[in-house]
Simulated assay, not measured.
Amino acid sequence: MIKIAMIEDDAELANVLTQYLAKYNIEITNYEDPFLALSAIALNPYDLIILDLTLPGMDGLEVCKKLLLKHNIPIIISSARSDITDKVIALELGADDYLPKPYDPRELEVRIKTILRRCSKELELLKPEAKKEIFILDEKKQEITKDGEFVKFTPAEYEIMSLMCKRKGFVVSRYDILQNCSLLNSSEESGTLAVIINRIRTKIEQDPKNPKYLLTIRGSGYKLVK
């Protein structure tokens, strides 16, 4: 359901548009008073605003300016004013469209959906790109992939690497690794662990001597970077 705030003091026109647009899954809430409208829009989420310019108590252009200062909501100006200056000012302020009265409600419906489609695409472009996971652990298959490619580990290497994947981004102490990996004897010296870590690095690092994925955190343990 598309939710729209209409600021229109012509109650008859507002009623006609409300009934017509309801057939297209568009819910209109009309406010005849611009001050009430500004308060309501601050408290309620709307997808779009339809704004008349000739309003009681406050000029529509001033309402437009106040809305654009506080909200990032598309605005369609719906006005009987024929002065081109009003249209230019409204669009320069940041209104998304200007629809001169009288107009066919069908045209308004099309413009609403066109603007919302465009805004939706713009929001998608602004979304930060999801960071691609380098290492993926599949516990059911007991497999680990790097950049989508299967990496062949020995059982002990897999056990350590799977623990590191589960705690990706966090430092895992040598003690934790020895306690959580059944193929490693917890009484063994950490030097044995260091040997296995080095073997893992030869399989996942471009330069094992200067690792960028499986890091040694001096005095603490190891960390698999995100």
Results as ranks from 00 to 15, higher is better:
172 V>F: 04
131 K>T: 10
212 K>S: 13
223 K>P: 01
159 E>H: 04
67 L>M: 01
35 F>K: 13
143 E>Q: 06
74 P>Q: 10
110 V>C: 12
200 I>L: 09
200 I>Q: 01
103 Y>D: 08
95 A>Y: 04
203 K>I: 04
8 E>Y: 04
37 A>I: 04
158 Y>M: 11
58 M>I: 05
203 K>H: 08
187 S>E: 15
4 I>E: 00
211 P>N: 05
53 L>D: 03
39 S>Q: 12
39 S>H: 14
128 P>E: 05
160 I>M: 00
153 F>W: 05
42 A>E: 15
67 L>K: 02
137 L>P: 00
92 E>N: 15
84 I>E: 15
215 L>F: 06
141 K>D: 06
151 V>H: 00
128 P>V: 07
31 Y>Q: 10
105 P>E: 13
107 E>H: 12
13 L>H: 03
25 N>F: 08
52 D>C: 03
62 E>D: 14
14 A>C: 10
152 K>G: 10
120 S>K: 13
195 V>N: 08
15 N>K: 13
122 E>I: 13
145 T>Q: 10
48 L>V: 02
225 V>K: 07
128 P>Y: 10
210 N>C: 03
218 R>H: 14
188 E>Q: 11
203 K>E: 07
126 L>K: 13
139 E>K: 13
127 K>G: 05
21 L>C: 09
105 P>M: 07
117 R>D: 13
175 Y>T: 13
22 A>C: 01
84 I>K: 07
127 K>P: 04
58 M>E: 13
33 D>C: 03
137 L>D: 08
66 K>Q: 06
21 L>Y: 04
185 N>W: 05
97 D>H: 09
131 K>Y: 08
112 I>Y: 04
220 S>C: 09
61 L>C: 00
54 T>C: 04
159 E>K: 06
187 S>I: 10
121 K>V: 12
204 I>E: 02
121 K>F: 14
79 S>K: 00
136 I>S: 09
50 I>L: 15
221 G>S: 00
109 E>W: 09
113 K>A: 09
203 K>P: 06
6 M>Y: 04
209 K>M: 10
140 K>Q: 09
175 Y>R: 15
226 K>T: 12
210 N>Q: 11
101 K>T: 06
30 N>Q: 10
93 L>F: 15
89 I>W: 00
147 D>E: 15
199 R>A: 10
30 N>G: 05
170 F>T: 14
76 I>R: 05
83 D>F: 09
206 Q>K: 15
80 A>K: 08
103 Y>T: 02
184 L>C: 05
95 A>C: 07
